[in-house]
Simulated assay, not measured.
Amino acid sequence: MTVTADERRARILQVVRDLGTVRVVDLATRLGIPAVTVRRDVAALADAGELARSHGSVALPDSGTNARHDRVIGMLVPTVGSYFDEVIAGARAAATAAGARLVLGIAAYEARDDRAQVERLLESGVDGLLLTPNWQPGDPPHHPGDQHWLAELPVPAVLVERKADPGSAAAELDAVGSDHRHGVLLALRHLAGLGHDTVLLAARADTWTAHQVRTGYAEAVPLLGLRTRPVIDMHRPGAPTNIPDPEWVAQQIAEATADGVRAVLVHNDQDAIQLPPLLRIRGLRVPEDVALISYDDVFAALAAPPLTAVAPPKKSVGAAALELLLRRLDGGAGLPAYHVELLPALKVRTSCGGDGGA
């Protein structure tokens, strides 16, 4: 006989009343119900105020459990060591301020194993999730058939530096990210103000952010009345590996200068920082002959010369996502989903010439 959700939840409440604080995994074993189903039921009971969750355990609300200040938040990122270090730092600072604990999971860009990593975080007993899925440009769109599990998560989740396509399974999740299209507009508007009528874009094509940068470029060029130029791929077309080729990019920029092009936006810092010496070999100096702006502002200030850069608000994105998730855990289940975009800033240094007053 099929057991209804109401019957399952009544059984869960009875076990908690009998035993006091109980681990979610033990509840599942005791009741003979799949752990994912128990987590979903526990989340519903917590949202209704009938249970309090803490560190993978549940108790009655009047048992003295300080739920808000004893929560564990799982965070899934595609990499550490660059852009996401600052996002993680922002989330960790916000978690510490709220008395919560952050647990990290990494699903590398190459592995595409988001779901497996999320299952591991759930098994560790997290109360909520911050998720940066490995969505790639060219996924049609973002593999919607593979997203159903995002809509079935047993705990609240917030997308970080990702925004789901309308109509996809993840579209109704909360999301906090940078407005990368606005960031590109800032860079191109600054270069146009310095007198450039053409700005090249050299960009990767293998990440979600790169896709947003390319889209922002396509929108900003006609908006600012700039000349249209093809995007230069950081990965040389036809190359046997998918590794950025700065030599190839430098040669493409050098050839474009023969057509009067004197300004380039490069995504990302790691690739942009390699270009000035390669351009110098080809007789081009930065900024005297070529104005250069990078995107991300992770390493840009360390270049020679220091690179003007678009700086997404990485720490603020992490903090805002963590705070939104805590509000959702505090009984915000009935609120509409929030899609929050924070605006990048332009950090003007010496690589594009001018003093930033344009």
Rank of each mutant, 00 (worst) to 15 (best):
L185P: 08
S178L: 11
K163A: 14
T209R: 11
D165C: 09
I281Y: 11
A239R: 02
I293S: 09
A254W: 03
S351K: 10
V25A: 15
R9L: 01
L200I: 09
P246I: 07
H267G: 12
D174K: 00
R9P: 00
T209V: 15
V160F: 05
T132C: 07
R9T: 00
S124W: 07
R40N: 02
L19Q: 01
L159P: 12
Q270V: 14
I273Q: 07
G125C: 03
Y338L: 15
A89N: 02
D259E: 15
L130K: 07
R227A: 15
L13I: 01
F299N: 13
R92V: 04
P140R: 07
L150S: 12
G99K: 08
R120T: 14
R8M: 00
A192N: 11
H142V: 08
D355E: 08
V213W: 00
L173R: 04
D174L: 03
A203I: 08
L31E: 05
D297G: 12
R236E: 14
P156G: 06
R227E: 14
V58E: 02
T96L: 14
A107F: 10
Q270S: 15
L292P: 01
L76V: 04
P237H: 02
G167N: 10
L284N: 01
D297H: 08
D47I: 01
K315V: 08
G49K: 04
V348E: 14
L159W: 06
Y295M: 05
Y217R: 09
P61D: 03
D47P: 06
E323C: 11
A254E: 06
E341N: 09
V58A: 01
G56M: 00
P237C: 01
D62M: 06
V184E: 08
A263T: 03
E255V: 12
A28Y: 02
P313Y: 10
A52W: 02
A263G: 02
V231I: 15
A263M: 00
L275N: 11
A303M: 11
R262N: 12
T241S: 09
N268K: 07
A98W: 08
H267T: 11
L129S: 03
P246K: 06
P276L: 04
A319C: 11
G357M: 13
R327M: 06
H235Q: 15
P133W: 03
E288R: 11
G357F: 12
A210F: 07
A28W: 00
G49V: 01
P336R: 05
V261C: 04
V286G: 00
F84H: 08
